[in-house]
């Protein structure tokens, strides 16, 4: 079973919830793995203090100029729609950060002067704790292609953790990265707050999930701070509310120290119980 935890914007408690849920499921002897797919800013490892087990370089394929037979015809630069290749009077320059790995330049080159070669864009780290695993995709600074690394991290988890409950902590937003993190899951939890802000973000996230034809439910975080807008919206749209996590400064305090919440706060644990029960009901 694969479940994505997503939210329209950052700071809604996505990481707090996914790290706590992972640890809680593990404490009940469930086989569980958490994948942190917020590859630009992964910080689940701050909360789940596991031991680094494996570290794997993640590459993307990019063309590399081989001058031997090159006639400097410029076809490569012409077919690259991402401006990743510049043909200068005496040389061809490749800019890997702009490359989408479409292979067009390499395969359409009449002299095979641009063989595709691996180039590091980040790494996939696996952490082990007593009873659960955490896998984290980490994009190198200055790299922009988050999607291939997200896909690679999910593949890594799929291969290594067959039969586990797989929780995917998605990056924020509604753009390509969150779509990649959601589209192949069995279910998506959308986390939001019960404020006009939260509702606005939720609407965008719901729109995204509907285009993906994805099954989803809503978790209301910091419940009690705002109005009833989110609940009313969910009712009208027929979206299940999985649980309401109550607003509590103590939660924020524990979070600020990088500590897990549920061992110390009962109402938070009750919310996790509701989530676990809900997961049990997913086909």
């Amino acid at each position: 079973m694969k479940i994505t935890i997503a939210s329209g914007k950052g700071g809604t408690g996505k990481t707090t919830l996914s790290t706590n849920l992972t640890s809680y499921l593990a404490s009940q002897n469930r086989k569980v793995v958490l994948a942190d797919l917020d590859v630009e800013e992964p910080n689940s490892a701050i909360f789940l203090k596991g031991k680094l087990k494996t570290e794997q370089v993640f590459n993307k394929m990019v063309p590399k100029w081989d001058s031997t037979d090159c006639t400097l015809c410029g076809k490569c630069a012409e077919v690259c729609n991402f401006n990743a290749i510049i043909d200068l009077p005496n040389e061809i320059r490749v800019y890997p950060a702009l490359c989408h790995s479409c292979y067009a330049c390499s395969e359409l080159c009449p002299t095979n002067s641009l063989p595709m070669t691996p180039e590091r864009i980040g790494e996939i780290c696996e952490y082990d704790s007593d009873n659960f695993s955490l896998v984290e995709g980490r994009l190198d600074l200055g790299q922009e292609m988050a999607v291939p690394l997200i896909a690679g991290t999910i593949d890594f988890v799929d291969e290594k953790f067959d039969g586990y409950i797989k929780l995917l902590d998605a990056p924020p937003g509604t753009s390509c990265p969150v779509i990649e993190a959601s589209r192949y899951s069995d279910f998506v939890f959308l986390i939001t707050e019960s404020t006009p802000f939260g509702l606005n973000d939720l609407r965008l996230a719901v729109e995204t999930m509907r285009v993906l034809k994805q099954n989803f439910g809503v978790i209301i975080n910091r419940y009690g701070i705002g109005d009833n807008g989110v609940e009313e919206y969910c009712q009208v749209e027929n979206i299940p509310i999985v649980t309401k996590v109550h607003n509590d400064k103590e939660v924020a305090k524990l979070y600020s120290k990088g500590e897990l919440i549920y061992p110390k706060i009962e109402h938070f644990k009750n919310s996790l119980d509701e989530i676990v029960e809900f997961i049990g009901g997913i086909k």
Binding site: F82, N83, A84, I86, D87, L88, Y95, L98
Partner: peptide, 15 residues
């Protein structure tokens, strides 16, 4: 209209 790599193209044109 370019999403990325405008600087590269401009530099080439400048030269």
């Amino acid at each position: 209209a370019m999403e990325h790599g405008a600087g590269l193209q401009t530099a080439k044109k400048v030269l």
